[in-house]
Structure formats: structure tokens, C-alpha cells
Design a binder for these strands. Structure first.
Lengths: 225, 225
DNA sequence: CAGGATCCACGTGTGGATCCTA
DNA sequence: TAGGATCCACACGTGGATCCTG
């Protein structure tokens, strides 16, 4: 009957490593128990619950926007659902797509770049229907290879150019090799502003950048056995 | 033990008139009782409570920003605290002050103009410490006279020019004849962005436009006996 | 199986204003 | 007495992601 807790922020990368090593092999129930978090029966009514639990367990301190989760270490945390064969089960949300006036040469100042330049991936065996019994995998602290970074930048620049030309409506989830753009909002009625090809302001559904499963699969592949 | 209620939006000005006529002379307790709103002992912990009660009683439908409270009728609602002699006891909050890039020629597109071009004033005898026993006065549906509108516009344009020149720091509550600028935020630590005289972006306290008591006193004067 | 739709938490900002002290 | 400070409610947007049909 204690209040939910969270751990303090790690101050060094070594400290962070110790923590995520200690998580590997644990069940969600173990981690939730230590922090006094009640485990829900399913995720229908809080799809981000597992991610938030792991943030609390590792001591993420960014409640703020567009900041990496570990502000001191400049590292982003992502939980990634996999099956028992190590196969990635979902795409990974990165950040919202800015729909107005983004300089297309500003990749290194973009939200997507900041989120992806260094990521701690926590694989989560998600085949068990029972959330409590799901097992944490071996975490990977990833920095994109030159090739991977080039793919991301290339996709991002194409998307950004199209949006600046008012062609957002022409972008589908099929575009992009590593990144894709998909809806992101409360529901299909949510609205944001952008411009059309005539430069007029119009209302449209908010979108997010997502990493394709194939891309994240490649990141994890080297480390699964 | 019923849930708090609110009335539907009035569809015509006549309907609105009927409603606010029926409020005159009633106690806060009467109105709150009909809507099943519990009356607080004081306003320390919800300074806007009375205004929100009257919004519910009259059927304001704008939960949205920068819209008049009665969206169909394009009318704004303001409760105004007075003493037993009809003296206005407080300044009246209008809207927040935009701290970046407002064209100084855009008075008629400004938030302040939209809020003030037609206002239903509900005087509230506020000398009683007992909130429940406070009495609603005779409401006034006001459109600014040419003179009043000129004062408002003049004040607004001077403020807007100064802000665009980066002189926000030089504006005090002493400036302005009808309007004044005062702090508006959670507390003294709240921050917004503006520019200084060198054009650099700086952090400053958020501000609001307020009507001086003398100005609202003149509006009410013609109708009090 | 993947594109389109959706769900909760929570921080922030605006709208409703009044409080409080020099 | 009025200028500066402050209080709550609630809508909205972003961050955490997964759901669910053709």
C-alpha cells in the first residue's frame, strides 16, 4: 500500500550500465514490485505503461519536451517489444512531425536527430499475455553507424522538403526506408495546422515519425543469441 | 448528491436576456443550488469559482481559447465584484499579452479587441464574507462607445509598439489609461519568451491585460441607482 | 502485417479571477 | 489602494507506446 516510486537519475554512464544490466532477465512484476507500481491486467488503458515503468526504474529525469530521457548523459530510452525469437513486433515512435517551417538543412537540430543520436534499447519479451510475467531482455546502448545515420537523415530531409512544399497530403506510411510518417494523436479527429501546395494554411491530422521494424531489427540483431 | 450541472447555450440574445434578468437579486447559494454546485467557504482555493458558476448558469459554451464565452452570440461574460455602494473592487482580467511578433496595426484582430467588443457584465455584491450570501446585481450588456473604444485601442497600440521594440521591461502597471499590463501566471517563477531592445530572445514573466477599476466603474455607473 | 487509429499520463498554458502587503 | 503575486480548473499537446482491421 506504498506510493509508487522512481529511482534517481544516474550520474554516469557506468552507473546507468549497472542498472540496466541488473534489469536483464527480470520480470515486469519484479521491477514493478520494487517500485510499488501495481501491474495492470492489460495495456488497453495505458499503452505506454511498460515504457514508463522502465523509465522510473532507470531514473529518467526528462519530464520535458524534446530532451533525451537521461538529461545528464544525453541518452534516450526506448523499450522495444520482441517475440521469443527476438523478432521486433512494433514500429518505434520517435517524435512528432513539425508541420510548419522547418529548415530542411537542419537535420542536426531536428527533434528526430536529438532523439536518435544515442539510444538505450530495452528489449521486452512481449508474447506473454500476462504483463506481469514479461521478461526484460539485454539492453543495448546504441549510436547509429555512419550508414544508419545517413539513412535517417536522407529520409528526414525528403519528408521535410515535401512538407515545406505543402505536400504533406502526398506522404503515406509507405515512404521512407528507415523512418516513416504515421498518424499520431488522440484520434482521427485531432487537428494541427500545415500548408498545402498553394501555401494556404489548412487543418490536418497530427503525424509522428516512427522507425520501421526492419530498421530496429537490424540494431538488435547483432546482440541477440 | 447530484452531479454539478450547467445550462445549455442560449441561441438568441433575447434568450440570454431572459436568463440574466432572472439572475438579478439571487444569491450565489440559490444559483449554485439549482445547478448542484457545492459552495466553497472562501475563494482562496479557486479564485475563479464565482465566474465559473455564472458561466454555467448562463450557458457559456466556449471552453476554447480567444473565443467569446457565448460563441453563437459573440458575447463575452465578465463578473465584476462591487461593494454595497456600487464601487468596483477589482481590476478586470482581459487576456494574456502576446509577447512576440504582433503587428501593431492589428487592433481589430487582437485578443483584447475580441474580448471587449461586446461584454455582458454581471455585478456581484462581494462585501459579504459568506460567499453563499452574495447577491447578483443587474447585468449590463455593453458595447464600447466610440470614445471608450478609442481609449482601448490607443493603450493597446502603445503597449504593442513598445513590446515590438523590446521595451517590455520598461512597461509598468502605471502605463495605460483604460488598460494596464500586470503579471499573469502561476507565480513569480513562471516564464515566457520575449525580445529585449537588442532583439535578443529573453525569458520574462507572463503578463496579462487588465481593465482599470475606474474604466469599468464608468461602464457600470450609468446603470446603478 | 503493417498502415491507420487510438489510449493514458502529465506538463504547460490560458481562462476564471482574487489575494496581499508595502 | 493598487501593483505585484498567486490560486484552481481544464483544454491541449507531447511522450510513453500498442491496438486492430483489411
Amino acid at each position: 500500500m506504498q506510493a509508487p516510486q522512481r529511482r534517481p537519475a544516474p550520474e554516469t554512464e557506468t552507473e546507468l550500465q549497472q542498472r540496466y544490466h541488473s534489469l536483464a532477465g527480470q520480470r515486469i512484476a519484479d521491477i514493478a514490485g520494487e517500485l510499488h507500481w501495481p501491474v495492470p491486467d492489460n495495456l488497453h488503458s495505458n499503452k505506454g505503461w511498460q515504457g514508463q515503468l522502465l523509465e522510473a526504474a532507470l531514473g529518467c529525469d526528462a519530464a520535458s519536451k524534446s530532451e533525451p530521457d537521461f538529461t545528464l548523459l544525453d541518452i534516450e530510452l526506448k523499450t522495444i517489444p520482441i517475440d521469443s525469437h527476438g523478432k521486433v513486433l512494433e514500429s518505434t515512435y520517435v517524435c512528432i512531425v513539425p508541420l510548419s517551417h522547418t529548415p530542411a538543412d537542419a537535420w542536426q537540430h531536428s527533434c528526430a536527430y536529438k532523439k536518435l543520436k544515442r539510444v538505450l534499447w530495452i528489449p521486452l519479451m512481449s508474447e506473454s499475455v500476462d504483463i506481469a510475467e514479461r521478461i526484460i531482455g539485454t539492453a543495448i546502448l546504441w549510436t547509429p553507424t555512419t550508414q544508419q545515420m545517413a539513412m535517417l537523415q536522407s529520409d528526414w530531409q525528403e519528408f521535410t522538403s515535401m512538407i515545406n512544399l505543402g505536400q504533406l497530403q502526398d506522404i503515406t506510411s509507405k515512404h521512407g526506408d528507415a523512418l516513416q510518417i504515421r498518424p499520431k494523436g488522440a484520434d482521427a479527429k485531432a487537428l494541427s495546422e500545415t500548408i498545402n501546395a498553394q501555401g494556404e494554411t489548412i487543418q490536418t491530422m497530427p503525424r509522428g515519425y516512427y522507425l520501421r521494424p526492419g530498421f530496429t531489427q537490424n540494431i538488435l540483431k547483432s546482440c541477440l543469441y
